[in-house]
Simulated scan of single mutants.
Amino acid sequence: MVSPAAASPVTASPAGRPQGLPPFSFEITARCTRTRARCGCFHTPHGPVHTPRFMPVGTAASVKGVSVPQLADTGAEMVLANTYHLHLMPGEAVVAEAGGLHRFMGWQGPLLTDSGGYQVFSLGALNRIDDQGVTFRSPRDGARIAITPERSMQIQMELGADVAMAFDQCPPWPATESEVIEASRRTHAWLERCIAVHSRPDQALFGIVQGGCYPHLRRESARVVASMDLPGIAVGGVSVGEPVEEMHRIVREVGPLLPEDRPHYLMGVGSLREMAVAVAHGFDLFDCVLPTRLGRHGAALVGGERWNLRNARFRHDHTPLDASCSCLACRLHTRAYLHHLVRSEEMLGRTLLSLHNLTTLLRFTTAMAQAIGEGTFAEDFAPWQPDSPAAHTW
């Protein structure tokens, strides 16, 4: 890993990658003097990721309802895919035959695959956990599927994303201290096993900090994961049902403990306020299924609020959804038209609202980066609240 001071790009290669850098490096380009917020650039073999940045979730190698060209128009740079679900269908061998996940889905920018560890939490009723790994019952056909740290790494290496996540155990909320201690112990042991078998030099492995809502366990997990000296570090086990105040506390306490010269990824978080709070405490990368899930249910993120486009108040409203937004929905269509599509259950309505929501989150993280560079982040975004000046542009 190259430190920010040493990572000084020279000219760009034909692929857009700065010459003289290793496959992965992170440089900090600006800092907020009143918070821990920073903006930077995470260099990957498939291009740069400018931070802070929201990453759309493409669970099955597809961001639901959105084509690759449309996704690129939202400003997305790095996209996520799900190891567990791609293992179930079509299988990592099929993806490898296609030349890897980038070619399979047609996305040429950076990609990240999660490890399957989140499904340890989300599919708790379908799995059995022990020190070796996790045995799942497939939600498709009930077949038994065993995923160990080694198997997760093998699958992710075959998929070939730029970033692979370590296999971890994400405890539910609430969980007892003894349960979280056990989950953290497994997470750390599994991380060592992931490191031992991960061998793709063109794929970065990120470790994951766990520890639930117990400060001393979070501190210990951050210490252990940071000691592994990996290209990036993530914080998991948030946005799993805990009160939002608990999430904020975890962010405040763990952020300063993470290696300064690595990208910091807060997993599963994508609301405006929570991203702003996290950026203020040194986090760089975020993901969430929220924007497309809202879009599929006829809801749009506008002015810091969630609007239900099914509501009758939009029937005769022939103004853009958000005049400040440049997405396809806002450029070409009106609230009345979107209301019509949603009420008619036309697929186009779901796609347009998903595009708008993705664009909104990406604009928000881009605006935070600009504010950090201009020295106004603390006034405008830390912490961002619906009645702050920043809210009026969203």
Rank of each mutant, 00 (worst) to 15 (best):
Thr113Tyr: 02
Gln119Pro: 00
Ala312Val: 07
Met368Gln: 00
Pro174Tyr: 00
Val251Ser: 02
Leu205Ser: 09
Leu309Ile: 04
Val63Gln: 04
Glu379Cys: 12
Ser221Cys: 00
Arg223Cys: 15
Leu80Met: 04
Leu272Cys: 08
His50Gln: 11
His248Arg: 13
Phe24Ala: 05
Gln119Leu: 02
Val197Cys: 13
Ser184Met: 14
Ala175Arg: 01
Thr59His: 04
Met1Thr: 13
Ser184Asn: 13
Pro263Ile: 01
Arg262Lys: 15
Ala222Pro: 13
His264Thr: 02
Trp307Gly: 11
Gly160Val: 04
Ala204Glu: 02
Cys330Glu: 09
Val180Pro: 15
Asp229Tyr: 12
Arg186Phe: 00
Tyr214His: 08
Arg252Lys: 12
Val244Tyr: 05
Leu332His: 10
Pro23Ile: 02
Ala336Met: 06
Val10Glu: 14
Gly124Pro: 15
Ala164Met: 15
Thr360Pro: 03
Trp173Thr: 10
Ile372Gln: 09
Ser227Lys: 01
Asp162Pro: 08
Arg313Ile: 12
Ser115Thr: 01
Val120Thr: 01
His188Gly: 08
Gly241Pro: 14
Val134Met: 02
Ser354Lys: 02
Tyr265Val: 11
Ala299Gly: 10
Val251Phe: 04
Gly109Cys: 01
Phe121Thr: 12
Ala143Val: 11
His50Gly: 07
Ile147Met: 13
Ala161Leu: 01
Asp130Glu: 06
Phe364Glu: 01
Asp287Ala: 01
Pro215Met: 03
Asp141Met: 09
Arg331Met: 08
Leu338Asp: 03
Ala323Thr: 13
Ala37Asn: 05
His333Glu: 13
Ala166Pro: 15
Met55Gly: 07
Glu150Ile: 07
Ala76Met: 08
Asn82Lys: 03
Gln169Met: 13
Arg151Cys: 07
Val225Met: 15
Val180Trp: 02
Thr148Gly: 05
Leu101Ile: 07
His356Phe: 08
Arg137Ser: 15
Ala196Lys: 01
Val2Gly: 07
Arg363Lys: 02
Thr29Asp: 14
Ala226Phe: 00
Leu126Gln: 12
Ala166Val: 10
Ile147Gly: 00
Leu217Asn: 06
Arg273Lys: 07
Ser354Asp: 04
Ala12Met: 15
His340Pro: 12
Ser3Arg: 10
Ser184Thr: 15
Ala369Thr: 04
Val254Leu: 13
Asp202Thr: 13
Thr83Met: 05
Gly349Thr: 02
Arg293Phe: 03
Val269Gln: 09
Leu80Thr: 05
Ala5Gly: 12
Cys288Lys: 00
Ala96Asn: 08
His248Glu: 14
Arg17Val: 08
Leu230Gln: 02
Pro172Tyr: 07
Met55Ala: 05
Thr113Asp: 00
Gly375Ile: 08
Cys325Phe: 04
Gln169Gly: 09
Arg17Gln: 04
Leu285Pro: 11
Ala371Trp: 00
Phe286Leu: 02
Arg140His: 14
Gly349Leu: 11
Gly133Asp: 00
Ala183His: 02
Pro243Thr: 05
Val10Ile: 15
Gly117His: 06
Ile181His: 14
